[in-house]
Design a protein around this nucleic acid. Structure first.
Lengths: 179, 179
DNA sequence: AAACTAGTGGGACACCTGTCCCACTAGTCG
DNA sequence: CGACTAGTGGGACAGGTGTCCCACTAGTTT
């Protein structure tokens, strides 16, 4: 990485950029993608609304940046999960339980990618990450496994009571042959 | 069914109600849930905007009615699919290909159900329908199978080139033991 | 020092929104 | 017939929106 001579203004700018992305994600968690506006995000971040348009000229820019950033964050989180049925089931249960809001936000952005081709690579990062962890499975089984993870998460989001790791484990086990 | 003496006004009213729902679905297909407003729906249906608020006082009413209605329609469509890997794969390929818009609309409403508990029964109709068709599978395998169908559909929606029935069949086969 | 640049914050524009309201038509029923 | 009801369509209100603009501050370079 080339490090240009530090510019205090630019450094603060980058910090604000990230604050805006984090604020956007919080707004999506709370109100959904439809709750995102330059003003609502700026309000959430405690900044004047013009700062939102300064860093992200259009709303699309803001959403694209948010999905890209949050997909990378989520991928980092999943990287620490061991590829065993128990660990995967626990990860899923946490995603639809304690981290429900975050997961929901992730899937709203995920679906947004269906309408905005430029978002797709970021949305698929999840899939490519999984393939690097479970690369030893045979292709068809792997595709079914990844699809099932997505489905279990979504169905967990529309359940009245989110499933527990104990309930999920047998399902995951069946999909994930022991190597 | 009790049949009250036919009232021409009411009959036309019911027709308009359905026209509004169909128009709402078309708007969602084209622009997403965020494109739905009383005015945009009325415009799509060729009616004055006040007719939209007359039949569905709030936007929520309209969205709820649309999801409920479209879930029933989709369930009817899937009812005709034979429970064989080939048929299921063809159904999926059509859902993410020719019927892409409709499927996308369905999933946007699906995700909306995660935020609106009153939408959930309608959203889960899909799952209960499947369980009536594939009830002979053992529970854990069935849950994985249903989840995988959802995942395959969503991933098909964010793919640059939607998968074909030929590509999907081996995956479906693995998930659906011949039994 | 002056010149330049990145960021700041307040305000403005035209537009679209949800919802309510009301005068009105046209079917139905006693 | 008159009374009633379902539906109609046009308009209004206050409020939120994306985006652009501009005078301004403060950090950086020459």
């Amino acid at each position: 990485m080339v490090r240009p001579p530090a510019d205090g203004r630019r450094a603060r700018g980058e910090r604000r950029r990230r604050e805006l992305l984090a604020a956007t994600l919080r707004v999506i968690e709370r109100e959904g993608v439809s709750g995102v506006s330059h003003r609502s995000v700026a309000r959430e971040a405690g900044l004047p609304s013009s700062s939102s348009t300064y860093y992200y000229a259009t709303l699309d820019d803001l959403l694209i940046a948010t999905l890209t950033w949050s997909a990378r964050e989520m991928a980092l989180g999943f990287g620490a999960v061991k590829p065993t049925p128990g660990s995967v089931a626990r990860f899923l249960a946490e995603a639809v339980g304690p981290h429900r809001g975050r997961t929901l936000a992730e899937y709203e952005l995920y679906l947004l990618a269906a309408r905005r081709p430029e978002l797709r690579p970021a949305a698929r990062r999840w899939i490519t990450l999984l393939s690097s962890v479970f690369g030893t499975m045979q292709p068809a089984a792997f595709l079914g496994f990844v699809a099932a993870l997505d489905g279990l998460l979504i169905q967990g989001l529309i359940a009245d009571f989110p499933p527990t790791a104990e309930q999920l484990e047998p399902v995951v086990s069946l999909l994930m042959p022991p190597r």
